[in-house]
């Protein structure tokens, strides 16, 4: 019994010191940040949001840009809704990753929250959208694809993941619209993940797939699929043969961006702090290497640019969601 008591008291001590060290790591003064930071990834481990949050934590802490310890917290559910609802109630020591879903959830009537309920801090990265077809497809270019869909919108089956109203879906709608396709009649097969879309395409179970470039690139390089168009401004590194939508007469640049935001009502100083730190982060080699590994591109915008950008994006998406037939 004595041994047990000693063991217990040691355990208690250990726990107490652990608690103590956690709460005393801040500077104690008035300066922000005054304690450990929390980083909400509004999704489970394994996706783009989680990867972005963990990459940021790694670079900010490893490169000593931010001295305070950053903890990544996963709050999955409702396409970001759960995590962002949580963020809304926190103090400025909690930040969260976001993407266009912070706009479209609201436009699709799935959420009350929109970017105006938070403090936008930055846009960090983007991926681009690609339209891919099986290698043996009779369709040879984007124009032929769209012409066929204009004649009969149900003649081709289009794979998308993981839900209608996301960037993969809406970028395709946007392009199809300019060719005069009746986009409300298109047959989309919704798959659970990008991987499922790729296997459906490889197996010939769908005729077309719309997905992010990174998901299609490896298959293209191995000569398993063809890519008809990418949604970037200029042709992409490693995919120099693939024309952009712009070159093919569609005036569209469609980024699939990811950014960072904080809870509502952050002060000027707090915003300035992150403008400085995040800019520094995007300039490190470690960050650039992570972008390269993940096939992300830098798309950095500081807080004021981000605000403006989000406003434009909201108008764009609002229009697009209506055209797609997903909302009135």
């Amino acid at each position: 019994m004595k041994k047990l008591l000693i063991f217990l008291s040691i355990l208690t001590l250990m726990a107490l010191t652990a608690c103590g060290s956690q709460s005393s790591s801040g500077d104690g003064g008035e300066s922000y940040p005054s304690k450990d930071l929390e980083f909400v990834a509004p999704a489970s481990p394994g996706g783009g949001w989680d990867a972005t949050a963990r990459a940021m934590k790694k670079v900010l802490n490893d490169e000593k840009i931010v001295e305070e310890n950053m903890n990544v917290v996963n709050k999955p559910g409702g396409s970001g809704e759960v995590g962002w609802k949580y963020l809304k109630k926190q103090d400025p020591h909690t930040l969260s990753v976001n993407s266009s879903l912070v706009l479209t959830n609201n436009l699709l009537g799935k959420s009350q929250l929109t970017y105006k309920d938070f403090t936008p801090l930055a846009i960090l990265t983007t991926e681009w959208e690609a339209v891919a077809i099986p290698k043996d497809s009779s369709i040879k270019n984007a124009e032929a694809l769209m012409k066929q869909l204009k004649k009969d919108p149900k003649s081709l089956k289009i794979a998308v993941a993981p839900g209608l109203g996301n960037d993969d879906h809406l970028s395709f709608v946007q392009a199809a619209k300019t060719y005069g396709v009746d986009v409300t009649k298109l047959d989309f097969l919704v798959y659970e993940s990008g991987g499922d879309v790729v296997s459906a395409l490889l197996g010939g179970h769908v005729d077309v797939a719309t997905m992010s470039v990174s998901e299609a690139k490896q298959q293209y390089k191995a000569d398993k699929v063809d890519i008809l168009a990418v949604s970037s401004e200029e042709r992409l590194d490693g995919l120099e043969d693939i024309p952009t939508w712009k070159e093919q007469g569609v005036d569209m640049v469609f980024p699939h961006w990811r950014g960072v935001m904080g809870p509502p009502d952050m002060t000027e100083e707090e915003i300035a702090y992150w403008d400085e730190k995040l800019k520094k982060m995007t300039e490190t080699d470690a960050w650039k290497k992570i972008l390269k590994n993940n096939e992300w591109q830098s798309f950095y915008k500081d807080s004021s640019e981000t605000k403006k950008f989000l406003k434009e994006q909201e108008e764009m998406y609002s229009d697009l969601v209506k055209k797609s037939g997903l909302a009135e």
Partner: peptide, 26 residues
């Protein structure tokens, strides 16, 4: 009661240590 309290304490600290510290579950 001795066993009860001891089990409760050991179990809670051990699981807190295992999950929170070793596995970094938040």
């Amino acid at each position: 009661w001795m066993v009860n309290i001891a089990t409760a304490l050991i179990f809670s600290f051990a699981s807190w240590y295992a999950f929170g510290v070793l596995l970094q579950v938040s």
